[in-house]
Simulated scan of single mutants.
Amino acid sequence: MAGTTEIGAENVYDFLKRFATDISLADLKLVSNRHQGGDSLTFYYRNDSLLKVPRRNDSRTGLLKEVKLLEYLNTQRLPFVVARPIFAHEKGLYAMFSRINGTSLPIEALEGFTPEELESFGKSVGAFLSFLHNHKFPVEVLDTIPRADDPFEVAIREAGRQLAFIEKHTVEVKTKVWTETLESLRESLDQRWAVVHCDLQINHLLFVQGNLGQLAIIDFADTLMHDPAVDLSEFAIEMYSDLSPDGIAAKKIVDAVLKHYQTNDPAIEAKIEFGLLLFAISRVYQEAMKLIRS
């Protein structure tokens, strides 16, 4: 079971009974689906801890990476809060972390922010990203974080391939504007490398005791070396996808984060635009693929 079987809600207790004999199964409570990542099952353990169990063998490396990164971050003076690793199985079968006294916001709550709340939110998220992207991590931490296999050069080629497919197989979608935008952004996409969270969704932003000025970040298992704009692009994609369709609220929130984000990259906004463009192209490409297969 430890090597090949995927772990799910139906077999996780048998798995833990076999491999985590020191954990009291009666004290576990599965975290709600809203906070369940795709790669791990997460449990509350007693009143002060969280237990993460990777679903698959290839997710265990990510858990060990997360443990190593959080161990280091807990030695630093941070403008944000992270969990403290308590212990981890040497092969990444499971790990225990301290439980953060914080809650995430339903994304629709962001549209109701007052100017003061928007400022606090932007300052908190901007401070976290500034630290993560600019901090000089030690070699022993960096050695656990792989380099992304989709730098801008690769992403541009893939976008071009998808655009050609869409142009060939659909008549409803006109790709000319997307192609022209892609070409106009190309010169701005110089690849930079930094530690990037790579899963910066609203569910992974917790506010300590509901205070927008005290941000806690969770779920670092997907962390990679990549361009810092990747985190900002993913955040912007969620805002523009899930908030009001006119994009007004999304732009206010993204701008609030950028206001407090420290970078010397003059192309950061162009790179975010590129991320949004990739998302739009990919979504239409997937729809076209489904139509052809059906």
Rank of each mutant, 00 (worst) to 15 (best):
T5H: 12
E6P: 15
I7K: 06
E10R: 15
N11T: 08
D14L: 03
L16G: 10
L16T: 05
F19E: 15
D22G: 03
A26W: 00
A26F: 02
L28S: 14
L30M: 14
R34W: 05
S40E: 03
L41D: 03
F43D: 08
Y44I: 10
S49L: 10
D58Y: 06
R60I: 06
G62A: 13
L64K: 15
L69S: 11
L70F: 06
E71L: 05
Y72M: 07
Y72P: 14
R77E: 06
V81Y: 09
V81C: 04
V81T: 10
H89M: 01
E90H: 03
Y94P: 14
M96C: 13
S98P: 06
I100N: 15
L105H: 12
I107F: 07
A109L: 00
G112Y: 07
T114V: 01
E116G: 08
E117V: 00
E117R: 10
L118N: 09
E119D: 15
V125C: 08
A127N: 15
S130W: 01
F131P: 09
F137Q: 07
F137R: 05
V141L: 03
L142S: 01
T144Y: 07
R147H: 07
D150E: 13
F152W: 08
E153Y: 04
V154K: 08
I156N: 07
R157E: 13
K168A: 14
V171M: 02
V171D: 08
T175W: 04
K176Q: 11
V177M: 05
W178E: 09
T179R: 15
E183K: 15
L185F: 00
D190R: 11
V195D: 13
C198I: 02
H204Y: 04
L206P: 08
F207W: 07
F207K: 11
F207N: 05
Q209I: 00
L212Y: 02
L212C: 07
A216C: 08
A216M: 03
I218Q: 12
A221P: 03
A221K: 02
D222F: 05
H226M: 03
D227V: 04
V230T: 08
D231H: 03
F235M: 03
A236D: 12
S244N: 15
K251P: 01
I253E: 01
V257C: 06
H260A: 09
Y261F: 09
Q262Y: 00
N264E: 12
D265T: 02
A267W: 01
I268A: 03
I268T: 09
K271P: 02
G275Q: 02
L278F: 00
L278M: 07
I281F: 07
S282A: 12
E287L: 13
M289F: 04
K290P: 05
K290C: 04
L291Q: 14
L291N: 13
R293Q: 10
